[in-house]
Amino acid sequence: MANPVLHPAVRVRELHKSIATATHTVDILRGIDFDVPQGQFVAIMGASGSGKSTLLGLLAGLDTVSRGSIQLDGEEITGLNEDSLALLRARKLGFVFQSYQLIPTLTAEENVLLPAELAGTAGSVGERARTLLNEVGLADRRDHYPVQLSGGEQQRVALARAFMLAPPILMADEPTGNLDTANGAHVLELLLNMNRKEGTTLVLVTHDPQLAARADRRIHMRDGVIVSDES
Protein backbone atom coordinates (compact mmCIF):
# COMPACT_ATOMS: atom_id res chain seq x y z
CA MET A 1 0.00 0.00 0.00
CA ALA A 2 1.40 3.39 -0.96
CA ASN A 3 2.22 5.78 1.86
CA PRO A 4 1.48 9.42 1.07
CA VAL A 5 4.14 10.58 3.52
CA LEU A 6 7.01 8.49 2.16
CA HIS A 7 6.24 8.73 -1.56
CA PRO A 8 6.08 11.71 -3.87
CA ALA A 9 2.74 12.17 -5.66
CA VAL A 10 4.48 11.68 -9.01
CA ARG A 11 7.88 10.10 -9.72
CA VAL A 12 9.21 9.91 -13.27
CA ARG A 13 12.43 8.12 -14.25
CA GLU A 14 14.16 7.84 -17.64
CA LEU A 15 10.89 8.30 -19.48
CA HIS A 16 10.96 7.80 -23.24
CA LYS A 17 8.14 7.87 -25.76
CA SER A 18 8.53 7.16 -29.46
CA ILE A 19 5.91 6.81 -32.15
CA ALA A 20 6.57 4.63 -35.17
CA THR A 21 4.85 5.84 -38.30
CA ALA A 22 4.81 4.02 -41.60
CA THR A 23 8.08 5.64 -42.69
CA HIS A 24 10.02 6.61 -39.59
CA THR A 25 10.12 6.77 -35.79
CA VAL A 26 9.53 10.02 -33.91
CA ASP A 27 11.07 10.39 -30.43
CA ILE A 28 8.63 12.59 -28.54
CA LEU A 29 10.10 12.21 -25.04
CA ARG A 30 13.80 11.48 -24.64
CA GLY A 31 14.61 10.70 -21.02
CA ILE A 32 12.56 12.63 -18.48
CA ASP A 33 13.25 12.55 -14.72
CA PHE A 34 11.46 14.45 -11.97
CA ASP A 35 9.43 14.07 -8.75
CA VAL A 36 6.38 16.01 -7.65
CA PRO A 37 5.85 16.08 -3.87
CA GLN A 38 2.38 15.74 -2.44
CA GLY A 39 0.31 18.91 -2.64
CA GLN A 40 2.67 20.73 -5.01
CA PHE A 41 1.42 22.79 -7.98
CA VAL A 42 3.75 22.13 -10.93
CA ALA A 43 3.50 23.88 -14.26
CA ILE A 44 5.01 22.05 -17.25
CA MET A 45 5.87 24.55 -19.95
CA GLY A 46 7.17 24.42 -23.45
CA ALA A 47 6.46 25.37 -27.00
CA SER A 48 4.11 23.44 -29.20
CA GLY A 49 5.62 20.05 -30.05
CA SER A 50 7.93 20.04 -27.00
CA GLY A 51 6.23 16.91 -25.67
CA LYS A 52 4.43 18.40 -22.68
CA SER A 53 0.95 17.09 -23.55
CA THR A 54 2.39 13.65 -24.30
CA LEU A 55 4.09 13.73 -20.90
CA LEU A 56 0.80 14.58 -19.22
CA GLY A 57 -0.97 11.77 -21.08
CA LEU A 58 1.67 9.30 -19.95
CA LEU A 59 1.49 10.54 -16.34
CA ALA A 60 -2.24 9.87 -16.41
CA GLY A 61 -1.72 6.41 -17.88
CA LEU A 62 -3.61 7.37 -21.03
CA ASP A 63 -0.86 5.98 -23.21
CA THR A 64 1.91 3.42 -22.90
CA VAL A 65 5.53 4.45 -22.37
CA SER A 66 8.31 3.26 -24.66
CA ARG A 67 10.79 3.06 -21.81
CA GLY A 68 11.17 4.31 -18.24
CA SER A 69 9.11 4.43 -15.08
CA ILE A 70 6.21 6.43 -13.70
CA GLN A 71 4.97 6.14 -10.14
CA LEU A 72 1.78 7.76 -8.96
CA ASP A 73 1.48 8.00 -5.21
CA GLY A 74 4.20 5.32 -4.92
CA GLU A 75 2.51 2.94 -7.36
CA GLU A 76 4.31 1.95 -10.57
CA ILE A 77 1.90 2.39 -13.45
CA THR A 78 3.94 1.52 -16.53
CA GLY A 79 3.30 -2.21 -16.27
CA LEU A 80 -0.41 -1.93 -15.60
CA ASN A 81 -2.97 -3.12 -18.09
CA GLU A 82 -5.68 -0.85 -19.44
CA ASP A 83 -8.33 -1.77 -16.89
CA SER A 84 -5.95 -1.40 -13.95
CA LEU A 85 -4.96 2.02 -15.28
CA ALA A 86 -8.62 2.98 -15.57
CA LEU A 87 -9.22 1.92 -11.97
CA LEU A 88 -6.17 3.89 -10.87
CA ARG A 89 -7.40 7.01 -12.67
CA ALA A 90 -10.79 6.63 -11.07
CA ARG A 91 -9.12 6.43 -7.64
CA LYS A 92 -6.33 8.94 -7.88
CA LEU A 93 -6.62 11.29 -10.82
CA GLY A 94 -8.72 14.19 -11.88
CA PHE A 95 -8.40 15.62 -15.38
CA VAL A 96 -9.07 18.98 -16.98
CA PHE A 97 -8.63 19.21 -20.76
CA GLN A 98 -7.97 22.20 -22.96
CA SER A 99 -11.05 21.49 -25.04
CA TYR A 100 -13.21 20.60 -22.01
CA GLN A 101 -14.11 17.10 -23.33
CA LEU A 102 -17.59 17.06 -21.90
CA ILE A 103 -19.86 14.30 -23.16
CA PRO A 104 -22.21 16.18 -25.48
CA THR A 105 -25.17 13.89 -24.79
CA LEU A 106 -25.07 14.44 -21.02
CA THR A 107 -26.28 17.47 -19.09
CA ALA A 108 -23.86 19.50 -16.97
CA GLU A 109 -24.84 17.64 -13.81
CA GLU A 110 -24.67 14.25 -15.53
CA ASN A 111 -21.19 15.09 -16.80
CA VAL A 112 -20.09 15.93 -13.27
CA LEU A 113 -21.65 12.73 -11.95
CA LEU A 114 -19.94 10.54 -14.54
CA PRO A 115 -16.69 9.72 -12.65
CA ALA A 116 -18.71 8.68 -9.60
CA GLU A 117 -20.95 6.52 -11.72
CA LEU A 118 -18.01 4.87 -13.46
CA ALA A 119 -16.36 4.24 -10.10
CA GLY A 120 -19.60 2.80 -8.76
CA THR A 121 -19.61 5.29 -5.89
CA ALA A 122 -22.76 5.04 -3.85
CA GLY A 123 -24.23 7.61 -1.46
CA SER A 124 -25.03 11.25 -1.96
CA VAL A 125 -23.11 11.74 -5.21
CA GLY A 126 -25.92 13.88 -6.56
CA GLU A 127 -25.53 16.31 -3.72
CA ARG A 128 -21.76 16.46 -4.22
CA ALA A 129 -22.23 17.16 -7.91
CA ARG A 130 -24.67 19.97 -7.19
CA THR A 131 -22.31 21.43 -4.55
CA LEU A 132 -19.44 21.43 -7.05
CA LEU A 133 -21.61 23.01 -9.73
CA ASN A 134 -22.61 25.60 -7.20
CA GLU A 135 -18.92 26.25 -6.45
CA VAL A 136 -18.18 26.85 -10.11
CA GLY A 137 -21.23 29.11 -10.35
CA LEU A 138 -23.37 26.88 -12.53
CA ALA A 139 -26.03 25.73 -10.09
CA ASP A 140 -28.75 27.07 -12.34
CA ARG A 141 -27.28 25.50 -15.51
CA ARG A 142 -27.08 21.92 -14.28
CA ASP A 143 -29.73 20.65 -16.71
CA HIS A 144 -28.09 22.28 -19.69
CA TYR A 145 -26.25 20.32 -22.34
CA PRO A 146 -22.66 21.28 -23.28
CA VAL A 147 -23.86 22.77 -26.54
CA GLN A 148 -26.03 25.17 -24.53
CA LEU A 149 -23.05 26.40 -22.47
CA SER A 150 -20.30 28.87 -23.36
CA GLY A 151 -16.66 27.75 -23.47
CA GLY A 152 -15.98 29.17 -20.02
CA GLU A 153 -19.03 27.49 -18.59
CA GLN A 154 -18.08 24.19 -20.17
CA GLN A 155 -14.64 24.36 -18.65
CA ARG A 156 -16.16 25.13 -15.24
CA VAL A 157 -18.29 21.98 -15.59
CA ALA A 158 -15.10 20.10 -16.48
CA LEU A 159 -13.50 21.50 -13.29
CA ALA A 160 -16.41 20.31 -11.20
CA ARG A 161 -16.15 16.90 -12.87
CA ALA A 162 -12.41 16.72 -12.17
CA PHE A 163 -12.98 17.31 -8.45
CA MET A 164 -16.01 15.03 -8.18
CA LEU A 165 -14.15 12.14 -6.53
CA ALA A 166 -11.72 14.43 -4.62
CA PRO A 167 -8.67 12.91 -6.37
CA PRO A 168 -5.27 13.30 -4.73
CA ILE A 169 -3.71 14.33 -8.06
CA LEU A 170 -5.15 16.65 -10.69
CA MET A 171 -3.80 16.88 -14.23
CA ALA A 172 -4.70 19.88 -16.33
CA ASP A 173 -3.83 20.36 -20.00
CA GLU A 174 -3.91 24.04 -21.02
CA PRO A 175 -7.12 24.52 -19.02
CA THR A 176 -7.49 28.12 -20.15
CA GLY A 177 -6.06 27.64 -23.64
CA ASN A 178 -9.42 27.84 -25.39
CA LEU A 179 -10.83 30.69 -23.31
CA ASP A 180 -10.71 34.45 -23.59
CA THR A 181 -8.76 36.40 -20.99
CA ALA A 182 -11.65 37.09 -18.61
CA ASN A 183 -13.03 33.58 -18.72
CA GLY A 184 -9.53 32.13 -18.53
CA ALA A 185 -8.79 34.10 -15.40
CA HIS A 186 -12.08 33.09 -13.85
CA VAL A 187 -11.50 29.38 -14.55
CA LEU A 188 -7.93 29.59 -13.25
CA GLU A 189 -9.07 31.19 -9.99
CA LEU A 190 -11.66 28.51 -9.55
CA LEU A 191 -9.11 25.78 -10.28
CA LEU A 192 -6.60 27.11 -7.81
CA ASN A 193 -9.22 27.73 -5.11
CA MET A 194 -10.62 24.24 -5.44
CA ASN A 195 -7.12 22.81 -5.54
CA ARG A 196 -6.24 24.56 -2.31
CA LYS A 197 -9.48 23.56 -0.67
CA GLU A 198 -9.18 19.89 -1.66
CA GLY A 199 -5.39 19.74 -1.00
CA THR A 200 -4.69 18.26 -4.41
CA THR A 201 -1.36 17.82 -6.18
CA LEU A 202 -1.71 19.77 -9.43
CA VAL A 203 0.27 19.06 -12.61
CA LEU A 204 -0.63 21.67 -15.20
CA VAL A 205 0.58 21.92 -18.77
CA THR A 206 0.66 25.42 -20.22
CA HIS A 207 2.58 27.70 -22.47
CA ASP A 208 1.21 30.78 -20.70
CA PRO A 209 3.99 32.33 -18.52
CA GLN A 210 1.46 34.30 -16.45
CA LEU A 211 -0.40 31.16 -15.52
CA ALA A 212 2.86 29.31 -14.86
CA ALA A 213 3.93 32.12 -12.57
CA ARG A 214 1.18 31.12 -10.16
CA ALA A 215 2.70 27.62 -9.79
CA ASP A 216 4.99 26.41 -6.97
CA ARG A 217 7.39 25.05 -9.58
CA ARG A 218 7.93 25.35 -13.34
CA ILE A 219 9.41 22.61 -15.55
CA HIS A 220 10.46 23.77 -19.03
CA MET A 221 10.60 21.29 -21.88
CA ARG A 222 12.06 21.47 -25.35
CA ASP A 223 12.30 18.70 -27.98
CA GLY A 224 11.27 16.03 -25.53
CA VAL A 225 13.70 16.84 -22.70
CA ILE A 226 13.53 18.99 -19.56
CA VAL A 227 15.65 22.10 -20.07
CA SER A 228 14.94 23.78 -16.72
CA ASP A 229 13.20 22.99 -13.45
CA GLU A 230 12.74 25.99 -11.15
CA SER A 231 10.77 26.64 -7.97
Binding site: A60, L62, E82, R89, A90, P104, P115, L118
Partner: peptide
Protein backbone atom coordinates in the same frame (compact mmCIF):
# COMPACT_ATOMS: atom_id res chain seq x y z
CA UNK B 1 -14.10 11.03 -28.04
CA UNK B 2 -16.74 10.44 -25.40
CA UNK B 3 -15.46 6.89 -24.86
CA UNK B 4 -11.88 8.17 -24.64
CA UNK B 5 -13.02 10.77 -22.08
CA UNK B 6 -14.84 8.11 -20.07
CA UNK B 7 -11.69 5.99 -20.11
CA UNK B 8 -9.60 8.94 -19.00
CA UNK B 9 -12.07 9.49 -16.16
CA UNK B 10 -11.51 5.94 -14.94
CA UNK B 11 -14.02 4.00 -17.03
CA UNK B 12 -12.90 0.47 -17.90
CA UNK B 13 -13.50 -1.04 -21.32
Amino acid sequence: DAIAVMKSLGGRS
